[in-house]
Write a protein that binds this DNA or RNA. Structure first.
Length: 579
DNA sequence: CGAGTTTGACCCGCGC
DNA sequence: GCGCGGGTCAAACTCG
């Protein structure tokens, strides 16, 4: 990776310094050898200046990079009178201990008479630049700190709003419970959440079972080990076929004895753990995550290996639907369907189903984590509402608080499906919430229309690992026994929500790195949080189309200006991370 | 020759 | 009961 790295001084009387600092937050392993450098140019007669710019791939690869941030400060250099053209006097390595040591030994006052041809004066110049670098860096950090504080104040305000909202809703809930109305009936009467009863019932068991499983076997996401890690459960291939067998056998149950037959023929009591696990498997398999992305390619690249096992013409769409199954591990139950949108054939609709039973490569982590988190958000949401603690309105506003039209949950589909629409801009004002759909924030589509191969940004491995660690940490701690099932389900919901959000914000590596600690702290705090902590942080970002324009971030938001939901523990952790 | 794809057949659920 | 549509199977085929 060849990047300009050196200290050069032109011969004009006024010299400008260009300090190039590799973007630390966005650095990749191959960039580690990139060092800050100073380029001193004499392109101004009266105003020597140091210009600090962050050098990254964008600024170097782009033909018209955004102008670097230029911070000017006086530099008095007595140039030699010879008009030598540009002369490179050496490279300043800011990571070299020698550079700082030399600079510290030089009297600062010497810089006024510095002669760039004199080694001592050059050292003085280096000192001057070093101080400037530190000043600039300090200034930048102050600015960043200020920005984070503003964000925190906004989050705090949102928290207060939500807390009031929660109290109101809890009061309403108590009043309705006093009338003896069951939650399911409430939903029907309210007409706000028309989720199939089958899904609601399974979702309760699924979330509970998922909580049990995850307590024993924490994992980065539900995508790894869901099938194979369950003790006594069949392997994934068997489970996959068992699902089909169960589906076929379910219609025969009515003719049978009425007992529940396990796949291996043993009688299994109702509500046993294995039955719950089966229901979990069935539900997780039924829950689907659909990703819409613009792509000319026949299939989006999600990091997994797939084998096509069928193709059908689907009704209402002239484009055939292809069926794939994951082949990264024998018996992985994950399948996906790929079909072009009938209305806009540039849009590729990929529907994922099931959870991987094997470790995933980093490249596959983002998509798998996102889809599985979205699916489990769906299931956890159903559990919470079915449990009666939250009515549908609350579910809508807390679990799925944003209506940025980037992700939708279709409850009317044959299977509960979360649709992540990566084809639209996330501007909430442009996309009013459709009736009967709940929406969750997800990242904007690839900024470049041709970046078809990666509709979702790759989640940095370190970020995923942090989530894993936090998940493990929170699961290792004994849970208060208030309502074990519910609480763990909510914890999963929180983790899923945050997990999805983190995958979303991974679109911006700078922000990802900056907020990784905060997000993971939110997860880690969930075990001590109260019921209201079900919500988690929803982070949405948008990018101005103009190259180099800053990415804007906000918590929550949406057409109805629903505030973000960050609760006390989360705010504390944000505080601690910022301070 | 093995892995992956194609494609017709089959199964099942569901609505009429 | 029947037909339709979605989903899967598996033999045939293709390709490297």
């Amino acid at each position: 990776m060849a990047k300009p790295s050196g200290l050069s001084i032109d011969s004009d009387p006024n010299i400008s310094f260009s300090l190039h600092i590799p973007t630390v937050l966005n650095s990749f392993p191959e960039q580690e050898d990139t060092k800050p450098s100073i380029i001193i140019n004499n392109n101004s007669n009266y105003c020597p200046k140091v210009s600090v710019s962050a050098m990254d791939d964008a600024s170097t690869a782009n033909t018209s990079p955004p102008p670097p941030t230029t911070i000017q400060f006086p530099v008095n250099l007595n140039r030699s009178q010879d008009d030598h053209p540009r002369r490179v006097i050496g490279e300043m390595d800011f990571f070299a201990e020698k550079s700082f040591k030399l600079a510290a030994e030089v009297d600062e006052s010497d810089h006024a008479n510095a002669d760039i041809n004199d080694p001592v004066d050059r050292t003085a110049l280096e000192l001057n630049v070093n101080l400037a670098v530190l000043q600039v860096e300090l200034e930048r950090m102050n600015t960043e700190n200020q920005r984070l504080r503003e964000m925190l104040s906004q989050v705090t305000a949102n928290y207060n709003t939500v807390q009031k909202h929660l109290v109101t809703l809890m009061q309403q809930q108590q009043q309705q419970d006093g009338k003896g109305e069951k939650p399911e009936e409430q939903k029907k009467s309210n007409g706000e959440l028309m989720v199939p009863r089958q899904f609601m019932d399974l979702g309760l068991a699924a979330a509970a079972a998922a909580a049990e499983v995850e307590t024993e076997e924490p994992s980065l996401s539900s995508t790894d080990g869901r099938s194979q890690d369950r003790s006594g459960s069949p392997n994934a291939e068997v489970a996959s076929k068992d699902f089909r067998s169960r589906k076929r056998g379910s219609s025969e149950d009515g003719r049978g004895t009425g007992g529940e037959d396990s796949p291996d023929g043993n009688k299994v009591p109702r509500f046993s753990s294995s039955k719950t696990v089966d229901q979990t498997e069935a539900t997780m398999r039924k829950a689907r995550v659909s990703v819409r992305a613009r792509s000319e390619a026949p299939m989006i690249t999600d990091g997994c290996q797939w084998r096509k096992y069928g193709q059908k013409m689907a009704k209402g769409n002239p484009c055939p639907r292809a069926y794939y199954r994951c082949t990264m591990a024998a018996g992985c139950p994950v399948r996906k369907q790929v079909q072009r949108c009938a209305e806009d054939r540039t849009i590729l609709i990929t529907t994922y189903e099931g959870n991987h039973n094997h470790p995933l490569p980093p490249a596959a982590m983002a998509m798998a984590s996102t889809t599985s988190s979205a699916a489990r958000m769906l299931l956890s949401g159903s559990m919470s509402s079915a449990d009666g603690l939250m009515n549908s309105n609350f579910l809508t506003r807390t679990l799925l608080p944003c209506s940025s039209s980037m992700a939708t949950i279709s409850a009317s589909a044959p299977f509960p499906t979360v649709t992540l629409d990566l084809t639209q801009t996330p501007n909430p004002l442009q996309f009013p919430r459709p009736e009967g759909q709940f929406q969750v924030p997800f990242p904007n589509p690839p900024s470049h229309p041709n970046s078809q191969a990666s509709p979702l940004p790759l989640l940095p491995q370190i970020f995923g690992q942090a989530l894993y660690n936090q998940s493990k940490f929170s699961n290792d701690i004994e849970q208060p026994q208030m309502n074990h099932q519910l609480q763990q389900g909510q914890q999963n919901s929180l983790a899923d929500t945050v997990n999805a959000a983190t995958a979303a914000i991974a679109a911006d590596p700078n922000f990802t790195a900056a907020l990784a600690a905060a997000i993971t702290s939110i997860i880690g705090s969930s075990h001590t949080s109260n019921v209201a902590n079900n919500n988690g942080a929803n982070l949405t970002s948008t990018t101005n189309n103009a190259p180099g324009a800053p990415r804007q971030w906000w918590f929550g938001g949406g057409t109805d200006l629903t505030p973000a939901y960050i609760f006390e523990e989360d705010v504390k952790h944000l505080h601690s991370n910022i301070d």
